[in-house]
Design a protein around this nucleic acid. Structure first.
Length: 514
RNA sequence: GCGGAAGUAGCUCAGUUGGUAGAGCAUUAGCCUUCCAAGCUAAGGGUCGCGAGUUCGAACCUCGUCUUCCGCUCCA
């Protein structure tokens, strides 16, 4: 089975058993939007709890918040999203490649600069001058010409970007004779602008409604609440604020199942530190977050770091945790050292002082931030794709089993009467009622016992408890383990402790704690 | 967004030269009682992705459209 086939099977399996459905499917679905079904929501909630506990319980200096999706529009000016998320894009029809129009022009300008430099060097050599002398003499008509067009193009680009004039941007590309680096042709489409933020209106139209955005990341809800939490929680630096919530991006290309959705969920933690100490904390969180992933037990070789060479406007260090999906290594989580960019900008845009008085140093400063930002849906996909297994059994049979870590499995225990008579269902119901306060438990009496085991395997239930006639006599039941298919006989009284031991989050959290 | 492929029951698919749909599995009910799925009986379930057009007649031909999958790009 190829990885591609595996991925297709996984998607089909996810739908068939109620993990994930296409959104509004009866209306043909909505592109890149998915719904979580009855099992998917349990899995997702368990993953969120795993993260939340790893942040807020394991660290006494991390607290959580839950900010609104709507925020004041100025937030997104301060964060840079209004600017950075509005890229003018152009396609080359021959190579089918898409470029940022301004980047194409900038590359062109850089090339012209190289050309000028070369010509100047040549002139300097010929006339026995220094580079600077040749540069400023400007009698070489070739240099003057190249420089004039370079300046003209540059000037037009700056103006076009400022005016948001997309037609002019395209005209600049045509006038400069810029060709596609791949196809070498000038067969360009129109320049289009994609605003990655979803807009909506707040207030009635009559009142003069304001455009507001659905947040494209949850982080800003933390930054704008920095002082609220720091002061009311009497937090001392270093400390962190964690948040889980939905974010929305109008992706141009959104595909690969739930890997890139337009409506997605993030788990973000912003850790506030003393300026100058950010790199140590960056390393700390880089390692801690990798431990969190690896603790799930999918195999360390399926993870790697991808350190960024090219940094975003707000960062001075950045790395990704990548997981090896069926479609290759892809980013699941980002760890960024964001400096004081966010808090500093909010201070600037709001006019409110956002500073921390450090009693140790006696200084007042804008804290630096180290961020961990993980996609919930990507983690769900990571768990699903790591867990899906088709096993060959003796006798040429196969079984599909979801080897989901027990602590995050949607259903923890299935209670099964061997037959649905002779009082076995009643005993099974009693066991279920005893366990249901602590765990998600399923009851099933339909079909043969083997078939019921397979059904539970397919949804990743780690434990099956089977009630048989012997149970009536001595109060014992069979516990059947998903991964090994092994069985053991235990007394009903021992069940709560046994189940707790098998499915407890504590084991995972201990590994994260290091 | 551009190019390629696909869309018939919950799933996997069949459906002849155009004559208005079928199988297996699954589901539900009953019987049977068996610790690793596919015993027996019965039932439910499809305006063939959607909309036009051609035709006496369209799942099938034509056009459009939507969705999904595969490449290009970005990102949590």
């Amino acid at each position: 089975m190829t990885q591609e086939e595996l991925f297709k099977k996984l998607i089909a399996h996810s739908k068939e058993y109620g993990f994930i459905f296409p959104s509004s499917e009866i209306y043909d679905g909505l592109s890149a939007v998915y719904d979580y079904g009855q099992l998917g929501v349990e899995l997702k909630n368990n993953i969120k709890k795993y993260w939340w506990d790893a942040m807020t319980k394991l660290n006494d200096n991390i607290v959580g918040i839950d900010a609104a999706i709507f925020m004041h529009p100025r937030t997104w000016e301060a964060s840079g999203h209004v600017g950075a998320f509005n890229d003018p894009l152009i396609d080359n029809r021959d190579s089918k490649k898409r470029y940022r129009a301004d980047v194409l022009i900038e590359d062109y300008i850089a090339k012209q600069d190289d050309k000028i430099e070369k010509e100047v060097e040549k002139a300097a050599k010929r006339f026995g001058e220094s580079f600077d002398e040749a540069l400023f003499r400007e009698t070489n008509p070739r240099i003057a010409e190249v420089r004039a067009t370079r300046e003209a193009i540059h000037g037009r680009m700056v103006k076009a970007l400022g005016d948001n004039d997309l037609e002019e941007l395209r005209q600049i590309i045509l006038d400069a004779g810029i060709v596609c680096p791949i196809s070498g042709t000038r067969n360009w489409t129109e320049v289009r602008q994609f605003n990655l933020m979803f807009e909506t209106k707040m207030g009635s139209v009559a009142e003069g409604a304001n455009t507001i955005y659905l947040r494209p990341e949850t982080a800003q809800g933390i930054f704008v609440n920095f002082l609220n939490v720091q002061k009311t929680g009497r937090m001392k630096i270093p400390f962190g604020i964690a948040q889980i919530g939905k974010a929305f991006r109008n992706e141009i290309v959104a595909r690969q199942f739930i890997f890139r959705m337009r409506d997605f969920e993030q788990m973000e933690m912003q850790f506030f530190v003393r300026p100058g100490e950010e790199m140590g904390w960056f390393e700390h969180w880089r390692e801690t977050r990798m431990r969190w992933h690896r603790a799930m037990g999918f195999g360390d070789s399926h993870y790697r770091f991808h350190d960024h060479d090219k940094l975003a406007h707000y960062a001075n260090a950045a790395t990704d945790v990548e997981y090896e999906f069926p479609f290759g290594f892809k980013e699941v989580e980002g760890i960024h050292s964001r400096t004081d960019f966010d808090l500093g900008n909010h201070q600037k845009f709001s006019g409110k002082k956002i500073q921390y008085f450090d009693t140790e140093t006696g200084e007042s400063y804008v804290p630096y931030v180290v961020e961990t930002s993980i996609g919930v849906d990507r983690t769900v996909l990571q768990v699903l794709s790591a867990s899906y297994k088709e096993e060959a059994l003796e006798g040429g049979e196969t079984r599909v089993v979801m080897a989901i870590p027990p602590a995050i499995a949607p259903v923890k225990v299935a209670v099964l009467p061997l037959v649905k008579k002779d009082g076995l269902p009643e005993v099974a119901r009693r066991i279920m009622n005893d366990l249901k306060f602590d765990h998600n438990v399923q009851y099933d009496e339909k079909d043969s016992i083997g078939k019921r085991y397979r059904r539970q395997d397919a949804i990743g239930t780690p434990l099956c408890v089977t009630v048989d006639h012997q149970s009536l006599e001595d109060g014992t039941v069979t516990v059947r383990y998903r991964d090994t298919m092994a069985q053991s006989r235990v007394s009903i009284a021992e069940l709560p402790a046994l189940v707790e031991n098998e499915v407890s989050l504590k084991k995972l959290l201990e590994k994260v704690n290091g």
